[in-house]
Computed example of a mutant assay.
Amino acid sequence: MVTHESAKRKLLVLVGPTAVGKTRLSLEIAESFGCEIISGDSMQVYRGMDIGTAKATKDERSRILHHMIDIHDPDYPFSVAEFQDRSRTLIEQISERGRLPFIVGGTGLYIESLCYGFQFSDAGSDEAFREEQLAYLKSKGEQALHDKLRQIDPPTAERLHPNDHRRVIRALEVAHLTGIPMSQHLAGQRKESPYDLCLIGLTMDRQLLYKRIEDRIDQMVEEGLVEEVKGLRLLGYGDDLVSMQGLGYKEITAYLRGELSWEDAIVLLKRNTRRFAKRQLSWFRHMKDIRWVDVSETSNFSKHLLTINDIIAGKLISPTEYTS
């Protein structure tokens, strides 16, 4: 007899803050367990935005099939609803191929909404209200708009960066339409997953993580982040696009426009990325079911991999390379 639980699709998920080391571990895990990787990053969907979003390289993607990368141009308004819809379809297709679907990323709302089947359509929309908020943004600035959200929905304001205009306005719109803050909508969602879920989170000593973030940004600059941003602007992608407001793109754009010195732009980018990592960890800490693995001892990669493999083997499936 097939039980309800056994009928669920298996889903492996690896989350954690930026620069914690998800990519390297995910490739090894995917090879051991016969996975296909679905990117759980809201920015990696955009073509031409490679360095600033820290996409897996072409060589890395040649090792393991990756999905949800390079599927839209930077002027496309990608949404959590589309992420859910596409990912659900991919999970079915990957499972039908006899492979294990593997979500890897750091966009908390996207990943949690997929894992637990959140619904976002009930609030509806109010185009006039959105236009009012856009006008407010242009006249008062992004911080003033963010402060409006903080007044009515502090938890949502805490997890959204002020330059994430689209999601800040959507959160204001939800509260305007329903009278209930988005954070309460999310808290009221059912917390039972439609999947046979194995959630693993990577964590690290905070100061070590911050050092890795700063080193990564220096590496991004060496790899051509400035040239990448210049190229996108030459292609006509405006500074007000959600994609161009992403970490790295916004700060480098401000430098290219003469609004920041080079030194100030890099200092600001490193600060903003550290704050982003803090918000990521805060989000994931509030998710249930995550098995946390501390990867602070970066020289013990094999040990961390073994720990993670044991968690997966105990929850979902034995890896192809396991004999014990």
Rank of each mutant, 00 (worst) to 15 (best):
Val226Glu: 12
Lys140His: 10
Leu134Gly: 08
Ala171Lys: 06
Asp205Lys: 09
Arg170Trp: 01
Arg170Asp: 01
Pro154Gly: 13
Leu197Arg: 04
Gln219Ala: 14
Ile152Arg: 00
Leu197Lys: 05
Glu127Cys: 03
Leu186Lys: 03
Ser139Ala: 15
Ala144Gly: 03
Leu234Asp: 11
Gly224Leu: 05
Gln189Thr: 08
Pro162Val: 06
Ala171Gly: 09
Tyr195Ala: 00
Phe129Ala: 12
Glu127Phe: 07
Glu214Pro: 06
Leu145Ile: 06
Gly141Glu: 10
Asp126Val: 10
Asp153Arg: 06
Arg170Phe: 04
Asp147Ser: 03
Asp126Ser: 12
Leu241Ala: 11
Val226Arg: 01
Ile152Tyr: 03
Leu186Met: 15
Lys191Met: 12
Ile200Phe: 00
Asp215His: 12
Met204Glu: 15
Gly231Ser: 14
Glu222Asn: 03
Gly201Met: 11
Asp239His: 11
Leu197Phe: 01
Gln184Met: 15
Thr178Gly: 04
Gln151His: 08
Leu177Ser: 00
Thr156Asp: 02
Met220Leu: 07
Leu197Ser: 00
Leu241Asp: 11
Ile169Phe: 08
Gly238Pro: 05
Leu225Pro: 01
His165Met: 09
Lys191Pro: 05
Ala175Arg: 01
Val168Ala: 02
Leu134Arg: 13
Glu132Gly: 05
Ile169Met: 11
Arg170Ala: 01
Asp215Lys: 13
Glu173Cys: 09
Leu209Val: 09
Val229Gln: 12
Leu202Cys: 06
Leu235Gln: 14
Asp153Pro: 01
Leu208Lys: 12
Leu241His: 10
Arg166Ala: 14
Leu160Gly: 04
Lys191Ser: 08
Pro194Cys: 02
Ile213Arg: 07
Asn163Leu: 09
Leu177Asn: 02
Pro162Phe: 02
Ile217Asp: 06
Glu132Ile: 12
Thr203Asn: 10
Glu132Leu: 11
Arg190Ala: 14
Ile217Leu: 12
Gly201Lys: 05
Thr178Asp: 01
Asp239Gln: 14
Thr156Lys: 07
Arg212Val: 00
His185Arg: 04
Arg159Pro: 02
Arg170Glu: 03
